[in-house]
Design a protein around this nucleic acid. Structure first.
Lengths: 352, 352
DNA sequence: ATAAGTGGTGACAACGCTGTCATTTGTGGT
DNA sequence: ACCACAAATGACAGCGTTGTCACCACTTAT
């Protein structure tokens, strides 16, 4: 790794004091154009990279974000991670990832320790942790800035900045799509209790039924978890009903894959005998036969925007002159993606 | 975040000099038991966490590892990541993840910049980057310690420390399993050219055929990529042959899922008309119908061991007295997991 | 001409820790 | 009891930055 080039080497080459170099690297302003150019040239020549450790130490601040999650969905996590990372790289931040268990009793202590240890400047939190009141209040108390991704159809309990995912209306769209396909016996397999998304999606489902005056049947609604296994089990339960549904809206693609599995195992055809829809547009919704109708959300973009928003906020904290102190709220609504698993009437022109 | 507790606070409470506290936190030895207890007690009481920035700066070293990957398999990446992270947390290291593109022309520069920027102490590299000679030699030149996960059946080109995954013999096992099920027309769908694993698995496949004196048919071997789409396309190609195979060994589960999809689309039954095996034991090998026979590797454990090994090596670099300077080699052999997609003759007792 | 800014720059302390080396304390051999 | 030597501890100088404050060279207003 050659001999380390420090700020002083740059200063010498540029013929200025090392403090001036610091001014340049930090965009502090009040540097003459001429000087600025000399310094930048020197930086380029020496391929100088400020030492983060020294920076953090001297500035008593940190350029590291944390991503906290507890999510079984590998695709989702990786999408989030990559999105955040892209933004971090661009803005000169580090990313510390922190997988953890939401039902760990000491989750709050764990987070506190981790924030301290890694000297984090801010946190990005995805569901279900982002929806746990005790975690949020603890974080508030620690006075660590954070942004969270949550499932909600509208801005809710004021306080902390959020990225809102409108699962409710997206689920409404899916249900309405099933109705348009001629279904009135539509079942719903709900995901984890602890994820607000599962409730939101259910509300969307119910709203669509109500709007179209379709009777709501208790037996068609089964609560479970975001897993393949539940999809299998839920489908079996539905098929055993005296009057089984003709379509099943599963709360995510994993459940839907299980549903599909079980339905086909019974010798039924999809979508003719049973239409099946998922949610999330995870890769394996495209790897089933037939492919699954689902709702797509731009997870990577969501993550990037969340990170960008947080970083911007941190910047404001540092220079209190521009006290646009609040992080703006962001909204996303997953988009319906229709595929073979629900298309009984002739397919309309597709966009995929 | 309260008032920061520093090493001096601890020293004062324990009634020793702050250097002694440093000795304790760094396990330097030559501290009396009695003193050690006092200090530890003080650390506990104050919930003291050494400041990493200061540590790195003063010691001119770093407690951060990098995980470099370019892999489309979310489950694999996350497993690796979690394994490494577990070890890092335990040993007081940070983890910097670095997804990148192996066919990026400037990959070497990119890594150099990243290593410098994040002040990394060592690297963990997974395929296919871990198998690219130019990347390795560049890393060697930078003198950054690293450990890599590679596909190989035996210790090869000496140099840098590796974790060896014996894909070859595992593929042999799978092929032999198909043979035991009565197949002699066994096709092989190979994954990416750039992943050595795809070649190793093919060699294993060929070895098994040879051992059992089964003729090797060129048309049964198709090269492609580790993707669902290739599985679909490859299967179609095989089924169009004048004399199609009776079983297909797909180079990983994703390909196998595609294969399954295409085979069933043709109205064939699995495993009766066509047996299908995958590789990797990724979750969705359990989410197909029927479930896929595959080979399982303990990715999480592999990752942990790799990280542990690297960290140990870094420790040795610091204290050159114990100059066990070489990182030991580690070997893993994926294990055959038989499931319905290949079981034509009555199932033997299962362990899952 | 003189006082009062203002933008640009530099000197220097401080951040919390590790490395080095000097110093103190304890131990065993005589 | 004494010395020699090792073990335990402390004093202090950095590590590469940022923050603070002082300073200088100009303007601009008097």
């Amino acid at each position: 790794m050659k001999t380390k080039t420090t700020i002083k080497d740059v200063a010498e080459l540029a013929g200025v004091s090392f403090k001036t170099v610091s001014r340049v690297t930090n965009n502090e302003g009040s540097v003459r154009k001429e000087t600025l150019q000399k310094v930048n040239e020197a930086i380029r020549q020496l391929n100088y990279q400020p030492n983060n450790a020294a920076r953090n130490l001297a500035g008593n601040q940190s350029y590291a974000l944390g991503y906290v999650y507890d999510n079984p969905n590998a695709y989702y996590v990786l999408d989030m991670q990559n999105g955040i990372l892209a933004e971090c790289r661009e803005r000169g931040y580090e990313l510390v990832i922190h997988p953890c268990s939401a039902n760990n009793k000491d989750i709050v202590d764990e987070l506190a320790t981790m924030i301290k240890r890694s000297q984090l400047a801010g946190l990005i939190i995805s569901p279900p942790l982002s929806e746990m009141p005790d975690v949020l209040s603890a974080l508030d108390e620690m006075k660590i800035p954070f942004i969270r991704i949550i499932s909600a159809s509208e801005v809710s309990q004021g306080s902390s900045p959020c990225v809102y995912i409108n699962d409710r209306d997206a689920a409404f769209d899916i249900t309405e799509h099933l109705i348009e396909q001629g279904h009135s016996k539509i079942a719903f397999l709900r995901g984890d209790e602890s994820h607000r998304s599962s409730h939101e999606r259910k509300i969307g489902y119910l709203n669509a039924l109500k709007k179209h005056n379709i009777p709501i049947i208790e037996d068609y609604q089964i609560d479970g978890s975001y897993s393949f296994e539940f999809g299998v089990q839920g489908a079996k339960q539905l098929l055993a009903l005296p009057e089984p549904p003709t379509s099943i809206f599963s709360c995510n693609d994993e459940i839907a894959a299980g549903t599909l599995f079980a339905v086909r195992l019974q010798g039924l055809n999809v979508p003719e005998d049973m239409a099946i829809a998922g949610f999330e547009d995870s890769p394996f919704s495209r790897q089933t036969w037939p492919m699954l109708t689902t709702a797509a959300q731009p997870t990577n973009t969501i993550a990037r925007k969340a990170a960008a928003s947080l970083i911007q906020h941190l910047g404001h904290l540092r220079s209190p002159k521009t006290s646009a102190d609040s992080i703006p709220h962001l909204h996303f609504r997953p988009q319906l993606v229709t595929r073979e698993s629900t298309l009984t009437i002739p397919a309309q022109p597709q966009h995929e």
